[in-house]
Amino acid sequence: MPKVSMTVNGKPVTGNIEERTLLVQFLRENLRLTGTHVGCDTSQCGACVVHVNGIAMKSCTLLALQMEGASITTIEGIAPSPTELHPMQEAFRENHGLQCGYCTPGMIMSALDIVRRKGHDLDEHTIREELDGNICRCTGYHNIVKAVAAGARAMAK
Protein backbone atom coordinates (compact mmCIF):
# COMPACT_ATOMS: atom_id res chain seq x y z
CA MET A 1 0.00 0.00 0.00
CA PRO A 2 1.26 3.50 -0.79
CA LYS A 3 2.56 5.68 1.97
CA VAL A 4 1.33 9.19 2.74
CA SER A 5 2.96 11.84 4.92
CA MET A 6 1.30 15.03 6.06
CA THR A 7 1.10 17.36 9.01
CA VAL A 8 -2.05 17.12 11.09
CA ASN A 9 -2.63 19.71 13.81
CA GLY A 10 1.05 20.59 13.73
CA LYS A 11 2.33 17.02 14.09
CA PRO A 12 3.91 15.05 11.26
CA VAL A 13 2.01 11.83 10.55
CA THR A 14 2.42 9.01 8.07
CA GLY A 15 0.35 6.03 7.08
CA ASN A 16 0.25 3.17 4.63
CA ILE A 17 -3.17 3.32 3.06
CA GLU A 18 -5.22 2.11 0.15
CA GLU A 19 -5.44 4.58 -2.71
CA ARG A 20 -9.18 4.94 -2.21
CA THR A 21 -8.86 6.04 1.41
CA LEU A 22 -10.63 9.37 1.90
CA LEU A 23 -9.01 12.07 3.99
CA VAL A 24 -11.85 11.84 6.50
CA GLN A 25 -11.31 8.08 6.82
CA PHE A 26 -7.60 8.58 7.35
CA LEU A 27 -8.24 11.17 10.06
CA ARG A 28 -10.90 9.13 11.86
CA GLU A 29 -9.74 5.55 11.39
CA ASN A 30 -5.97 5.78 11.15
CA LEU A 31 -5.33 8.77 13.38
CA ARG A 32 -8.39 8.28 15.61
CA LEU A 33 -9.24 11.95 15.29
CA THR A 34 -12.98 11.39 15.41
CA GLY A 35 -13.98 15.02 15.83
CA THR A 36 -14.27 15.33 12.05
CA HIS A 37 -17.62 13.75 11.18
CA VAL A 38 -19.17 12.07 8.17
CA GLY A 39 -22.73 13.23 7.66
CA CYS A 40 -23.88 12.90 4.07
CA ASP A 41 -20.69 11.54 2.47
CA THR A 42 -21.70 13.47 -0.69
CA SER A 43 -19.95 16.82 -0.01
CA GLN A 44 -23.15 18.62 0.89
CA CYS A 45 -23.54 18.66 4.68
CA GLY A 46 -20.18 20.04 5.80
CA ALA A 47 -19.78 17.83 8.90
CA CYS A 48 -16.38 16.77 7.54
CA VAL A 49 -14.89 20.25 6.96
CA VAL A 50 -11.19 20.56 7.81
CA HIS A 51 -8.55 23.07 6.77
CA VAL A 52 -6.09 22.04 4.07
CA ASN A 53 -3.14 24.44 4.10
CA GLY A 54 -5.43 26.88 5.90
CA ILE A 55 -8.40 26.61 3.52
CA ALA A 56 -11.72 24.94 4.40
CA MET A 57 -12.51 21.83 2.39
CA LYS A 58 -14.77 18.82 2.65
CA SER A 59 -12.62 15.89 3.71
CA CYS A 60 -15.15 13.31 2.49
CA THR A 61 -14.33 14.37 -1.07
CA LEU A 62 -10.54 14.39 -0.90
CA LEU A 63 -8.28 11.38 -1.10
CA ALA A 64 -5.80 11.05 1.74
CA LEU A 65 -3.01 10.48 -0.80
CA GLN A 66 -3.72 13.90 -2.28
CA MET A 67 -2.65 15.43 1.02
CA GLU A 68 0.99 14.39 0.65
CA GLY A 69 3.02 17.21 2.19
CA ALA A 70 -0.06 19.22 3.15
CA SER A 71 -0.87 20.74 6.50
CA ILE A 72 -4.26 19.72 7.86
CA THR A 73 -6.09 21.30 10.78
CA THR A 74 -9.05 19.53 12.36
CA ILE A 75 -11.38 20.55 15.19
CA GLU A 76 -8.96 18.85 17.61
CA GLY A 77 -6.22 21.25 16.55
CA ILE A 78 -7.72 24.67 17.20
CA ALA A 79 -7.89 25.04 21.00
CA PRO A 80 -4.89 26.81 22.56
CA SER A 81 -4.47 24.17 25.29
CA PRO A 82 -6.17 21.01 26.57
CA THR A 83 -8.08 23.02 29.16
CA GLU A 84 -9.12 26.00 27.02
CA LEU A 85 -11.49 26.45 24.11
CA HIS A 86 -10.80 28.41 20.94
CA PRO A 87 -12.80 31.68 20.94
CA MET A 88 -15.05 30.28 18.21
CA GLN A 89 -15.72 27.13 20.26
CA GLU A 90 -16.40 29.28 23.30
CA ALA A 91 -18.85 31.39 21.27
CA PHE A 92 -20.77 28.27 20.21
CA ARG A 93 -20.97 27.22 23.89
CA GLU A 94 -21.99 30.69 25.09
CA ASN A 95 -24.66 31.13 22.41
CA HIS A 96 -25.98 27.56 22.55
CA GLY A 97 -24.98 27.19 18.89
CA LEU A 98 -25.57 23.47 18.93
CA GLN A 99 -28.03 20.85 20.03
CA CYS A 100 -26.91 17.34 19.12
CA GLY A 101 -23.45 18.61 18.18
CA TYR A 102 -22.99 16.45 15.12
CA CYS A 103 -22.54 19.34 12.70
CA THR A 104 -20.60 21.50 15.17
CA PRO A 105 -17.00 20.60 14.25
CA GLY A 106 -17.74 21.36 10.60
CA MET A 107 -19.61 24.54 11.52
CA ILE A 108 -16.66 25.77 13.56
CA MET A 109 -14.06 24.92 10.93
CA SER A 110 -16.21 26.70 8.32
CA ALA A 111 -16.72 29.66 10.66
CA LEU A 112 -12.95 30.06 10.96
CA ASP A 113 -12.71 30.05 7.16
CA ILE A 114 -15.38 32.77 6.99
CA VAL A 115 -13.31 34.89 9.39
CA ARG A 116 -10.22 34.25 7.25
CA ARG A 117 -11.99 35.49 4.13
CA LYS A 118 -14.44 38.07 5.44
CA GLY A 119 -12.89 39.44 8.61
CA HIS A 120 -14.15 39.84 12.17
CA ASP A 121 -17.16 42.06 11.64
CA LEU A 122 -19.74 39.76 10.08
CA ASP A 123 -23.37 40.64 9.49
CA GLU A 124 -26.12 38.07 9.69
CA HIS A 125 -26.72 37.95 5.95
CA THR A 126 -23.04 37.24 5.22
CA ILE A 127 -22.89 34.48 7.81
CA ARG A 128 -26.04 32.80 6.51
CA GLU A 129 -24.78 32.95 2.92
CA GLU A 130 -21.37 31.64 3.88
CA LEU A 131 -22.81 28.72 5.89
CA ASP A 132 -24.37 27.45 2.67
CA GLY A 133 -22.14 24.37 2.76
CA ASN A 134 -23.00 23.30 6.31
CA ILE A 135 -26.24 21.67 7.30
CA CYS A 136 -27.65 21.51 10.83
CA ARG A 137 -30.79 19.49 11.42
CA CYS A 138 -31.47 20.67 14.99
CA THR A 139 -30.94 24.32 15.69
CA GLY A 140 -32.70 26.22 12.96
CA TYR A 141 -29.33 27.97 12.52
CA HIS A 142 -30.31 31.03 14.56
CA ASN A 143 -27.91 30.43 17.43
CA ILE A 144 -25.20 29.20 15.08
CA VAL A 145 -25.33 32.52 13.24
CA LYS A 146 -25.12 34.39 16.56
CA ALA A 147 -22.21 32.19 17.65
CA VAL A 148 -20.25 32.78 14.44
CA ALA A 149 -20.68 36.56 14.76
CA ALA A 150 -19.65 36.51 18.42
CA GLY A 151 -16.73 34.15 17.79
CA ALA A 152 -15.46 36.29 14.93
CA ARG A 153 -15.52 39.37 17.16
CA ALA A 154 -13.82 37.50 20.02
CA MET A 155 -11.03 36.36 17.69
CA ALA A 156 -10.13 40.00 16.98
CA LYS A 157 -9.31 40.59 20.65
Binding site: V49, I55, A56, K58, S110, D113, R117, E130, G133
Partner: peptide, 9 residues
Amino acid sequence: IGDPQVRNR
Protein backbone atom coordinates in the same frame (compact mmCIF):
# COMPACT_ATOMS: atom_id res chain seq x y z
CA ILE B 1 -21.06 27.48 -7.89
CA GLY B 2 -21.83 25.14 -4.99
CA ASP B 3 -20.84 26.36 -1.54
CA PRO B 4 -17.69 27.98 -0.13
CA GLN B 5 -15.86 24.71 0.53
CA VAL B 6 -16.66 23.41 -2.94
CA ARG B 7 -15.45 26.70 -4.46
CA ASN B 8 -12.21 26.29 -2.50
CA ARG B 9 -11.52 23.02 -4.30
